[in-house]
Design a protein around this nucleic acid. Structure first.
Length: 529
RNA sequence: GGCCCCAUCGUCUAGUCAGGCCCAGGACACCGGAUUUUCGAUCCGGUAACGGGGGUUCAAAUCCCCCUGGGGUCACCA
């Protein structure tokens, strides 16, 4: 029980509603969620929408959807409510105003009437002289009556927090240890804009205070915000929360922050470890009417859901990015993570997303899913791709057929959309495309292939029963009689019946397809020789 | 450039706080073999790392210093 904090833990994840969820952001959310759950505490979702009032509902939906998909519930926040409502910064104006009044009254903040151009010039001058920029506090010299006059005439101004320049500020970060800054190097941050709206650093602190956040767990890139925020906590008379600056999620194979910027995405497309995911997007999304890797890419959580990854796999992969349970445990359920997650086992250095490893988790977790889950997971892909109605059969959704196909595929079905690459089971016989290279190699080139296939075709027409065991026995008898090997006919048969060079067991495939379809497909292949 | 952070196999990591059990363990990837009608999966086996230099110590991946390298951040964005 030594790692259990004495007071109820309250963590928060505060996304800005951008219309999608960054996979790295989700990892941060997960750590917050895990820490709250591990301690029986509270996980809060708060929407940082201070900057602009875009269509919140539209931008928020994908974020909530991502949390729901992964099964990360929030105790307080949008739709859930809570005792610290509202959970949208855009609606918390009065709280910020109150905090602002207090800072102003206590002389810990001041109105800065310098026009932006003046500040800009100061900044450029500092840059030219190669010294750190510190705002010149001209407005501090204004007398109370001057200020009143300026206010009366509606003179535009911002409010700056007055940094105590003579001291230092430090935190004891749970993952990074003690980090200290010299306040003499910190410019007075603007906390309220000219239009009266609060800025992030200010709003966040006010929210963390008023929502009684005990642990601020966020990505390392926020470390630079700490001095200002810590000072703000103090100024507001609040104790500092526990800070845990976790490493950011890096692009595969690198140490650079995973970004959704277009120029970076183009690099990712060429990244050997990353490109597979992009290629998958370009392969499957067009078939199901979801655009391509330009609209849905692996930087977004939505990508993984829409292409058919399992939440367990994504969660497992995310949990292992910068955190470990011990020296050997790789497979982690959410439950296991909740039980063992502690902040002191978070690593300090950036962790690159590893698509290969994600796939290995996916393989494991897909293997844990019962057949009916796989059927339910695959069906939507077939429907959207127009493959749910197999010629001459009942719709795949209301028959056992799909379940049989999936059972035969076994672990070849890694993600749900993989079902689309086994479309030979769903296409009409005369629509089946052929892998031309394999067709040449197995049917056209071997001198005896076509004749053998033609000959075995006759046996297929009458063999009983038409099931895997029966078919295997029949083919064995056939090759024995011909004095050849299994491979001499099986490869030719596979390309003829499926159009592909590889796939699940040949006999199971034949059984599944059924006699009529097999015969027709063989005829069709022989005809195009 | 200023400030700050980081540094173990190709990758994710264990080990670093409490130096010896580490000529560094696991996993993924990779290579080889087994199995197999193909692919996949599976099972065996293998290659592979403490960035460099100084200290401290009987002993350093672990402690100290310097260097180098990588990264984050520098807005009336979040």
């Amino acid at each position: 029980m030594p790692d259990t904090p004495p007071i109820p833990v309250r963590t928060r994840f505060a996304p800005s509603p951008t219309g999608y969820t960054h996979i790295g952001g989700m990892r941060t959310a997960l750590f917050n969620w895990l820490w709250a759950r591990h301690n029986g505490g509270t996980f809060i979702l708060r929407i940082d929408d201070t900057d602009r009032q875009r269509n919140i509902d539209e931008a928020l939906a994908p974020i909530l959807a991502a949390f729901r998909w992964l099964g990360l519930d929030w105790d307080e926040g949008p739709e859930a409510g809570g005792s610290c409502e509202p959970y949208f910064q855009s609606q918390r104006g009065p709280l910020y105003q109150q905090a602002l009044d207090r800072l102003l009254a206590e002389g810990m903040a001041f109105r800065d009437f310098d026009p932006p151009a003046v500040t800009q010039a100061d900044r450029e001058a500092a840059e030219r002289e190669k010294r750190p920029f510190l705002n010149i506090r001209r407005s501090l010299d204004l007398s109370p009556s001057d200020i009143e006059a300026h206010l009366a005439e509606g003179r535009p101004h911002v409010v700056r927090f007055l940094v105590p320049r003579e001291r230092t500020v430090a935190i004891d970060d749970v993952v990074r240890g003690r980090v200290e800054w010299d306040c003499g190097l910190i410019a007075d941050p603007v906390i309220v804009r000219g239009d009266g709206t609060p800025l992030y650093n200010f709003a966040t602190v006010v929210d963390d205070v008023t929502m009684h956040i005990t642990h601020v767990i966020r990505a390392e890139e926020h470390l630079a915000n700490v001095p200002v925020q810590a000072l703000l906590f103090e100024a507001l008379g609040s104790a500092l929360p526990v800070f845990a600056h976790i490493p950011f999620v890096a692009a595969p194979g690198g140490k650079k922050k995973l970004s959704k910027r277009e120029t970076e995405l183009d690099k990712y497309r060429r990244n050997p470890q990353f490109k597979g995911l992009f290629e998958a997007a370009d392969r499957v999304f067009p078939r199901i009417g979801l655009g391509n890797s330009a609209t849905l890419n692996p930087v977004m959580v939505e990508y993984y859901e829409k292409i058919g990854y399992l939440p367990e796999a994504v969660l497992n992969a995310l949990a292992r990015l910068g955190w470990s349970l011990d020296d050997k445990t790789e497979i982690l359920s959410l439950e296991t993570c909740v039980k063992h997650f502690t902040l002191d086992r978070v690593i300090k250095s950036p962790a690159g997303l590893d698509p290969d490893k994600l796939d290995s988790y996916q393989l494991h977790w897909m293997g844990q899913r019962p057949l009916e889950d796989k059927v339910a997971g695959c069906l939507p892909f077939l429907e959207r791709a127009g493959l749910a109605q197999v010629h001459g059969l009942q719709p795949v959704g209301c028959s056992e057929y799909l379940a049989r196909v999936i059972a035969v595929l076994g672990d070849r079905l890694r993600i749900f959309s993989d079902i689309l690459s086994f479309d030979e089971f769903f296409l009409a016989d005369d629509e089946l495309p052929y892998d031309e290279k394999a067709f040449d190699k197995r049917l056209r080139k071997p001198p005896a292939a076509a004749a053998l296939l033609r000959k075995f075709h006759e046996r297929l027409a009458t063999v009983e029963p038409f099931d895997a065991a029966g078919l295997e026995a029949e083919l064995k008898a056939f090759v024995d009689a011909e004095g050849i090997g299994l491979g001499d006919v099986i490869h030719a048969m596979r390309i003829a019946v499926t159009g592909k060079p590889s796939g699940p067991g040949m006999f199971e495939t034949l059984e599944l397809l059924g006699r009529e379809r097999c015969l027709r497909r063989i005829d069709r292949a022989l005809e195009r020789l």
